[in-house]
Amino acid sequence: MSNQAVANRYAVALFQLAQSKGTLEQTGEELALIHSVLTSTPELLKAVSHPKVTLAKKQELIRNSFSDHISKDVFNTLRFLLDRQRFDIVPELHKAYTKLHHDLLNIAEATVFSAKPLTDEEIKQVELVFAPKAGKSRLIATNKVDEELVGGIKIRIGDRIYDGSIKGQLNRLERNLLAGNR
């Protein structure tokens, strides 16, 4: 079974547990913290995934790293993943949990590509305009600079792309000219 499929199963179980206890936000924040720590210190993930490190040492390392900062449920999930030698799926688990939480709240994530960095106000404006177009109550947008765009913006929401870039307009114009359309 793929790591993503396994991560989805664990995410659903943790999500249902958090939902029943009313700790959806807190659990999401704790998973984000763990993901952030693992991203900033890849040595930790290597250590807990290394086959020559004993399970007791791995559990001690996780306990020392996280037990004071996360709830018992999230900590037990981490211990369970260690026991099952599946700790490497934690980043995918965080992503799957976040998607479940956003689906429940009718939130979508978007990536806004622009030729130069957008201001916070411009990003908020994109979120307000495109949330209804995506059929969502709220949009969370992140900006990525793509200097090839020349100008304008391109927005990716899930599998949909809204292309208002100059590069996109030039490409459409070229296709129309080559096809003989005016």
Score class of each variant (00 low, 15 high):
94 H>S: 08
56 A>P: 01
91 P>T: 10
39 T>M: 00
169 Q>M: 09
11 A>Q: 08
7 A>R: 07
85 Q>E: 15
24 L>D: 04
21 K>Y: 09
177 L>E: 01
55 L>D: 09
49 S>H: 00
137 S>H: 13
148 E>P: 00
162 Y>K: 08
155 I>V: 07
182 R>H: 11
10 Y>T: 04
61 L>F: 04
102 H>V: 03
32 A>P: 04
182 R>L: 13
10 Y>Q: 03
131 A>H: 08
48 V>G: 01
104 L>R: 13
38 L>N: 07
7 A>H: 03
47 A>G: 03
9 R>K: 14
137 S>I: 12
165 S>A: 10
151 G>I: 01
91 P>Q: 13
82 L>S: 10
106 N>C: 07
110 A>Y: 12
153 I>H: 03
124 K>S: 14
47 A>M: 11
147 E>T: 10
180 G>H: 07
33 L>C: 13
55 L>P: 02
47 A>W: 01
165 S>Q: 08
153 I>K: 02
99 K>T: 15
68 D>N: 10
45 L>N: 05
150 V>E: 14
173 L>Y: 11
119 T>S: 15
110 A>P: 05
32 A>I: 04
42 P>M: 05
105 L>P: 02
126 V>A: 11
53 V>H: 10
180 G>L: 06
131 A>P: 13
57 K>T: 05
157 I>W: 07
70 I>W: 08
164 G>A: 14
3 N>F: 00
174 E>S: 10
91 P>F: 08
59 Q>S: 04
16 Q>K: 14
171 N>I: 05
75 F>D: 07
164 G>K: 06
132 P>V: 01
81 L>A: 08
161 I>Q: 09
43 E>P: 00
105 L>K: 14
42 P>R: 07
55 L>V: 10
182 R>P: 00
134 A>K: 13
10 Y>R: 02
149 L>V: 12
72 K>Q: 14
165 S>Y: 06
49 S>Y: 00
45 L>Y: 00
23 T>F: 02
154 K>T: 13
92 E>F: 12
122 E>N: 07
177 L>S: 10
41 T>R: 02
103 D>P: 01
36 S>N: 14
102 H>W: 07
49 S>N: 09
129 V>P: 03
128 L>M: 11
129 V>I: 15
157 I>F: 02
134 A>S: 13
115 A>C: 09
83 D>T: 13
148 E>F: 01
126 V>D: 06
152 G>P: 06
42 P>K: 09
33 L>Y: 15
128 L>Q: 15
67 S>R: 12
32 A>H: 12
23 T>P: 02
173 L>M: 15
165 S>C: 03
75 F>S: 05
1 M>R: 02
62 I>K: 03
100 L>P: 01
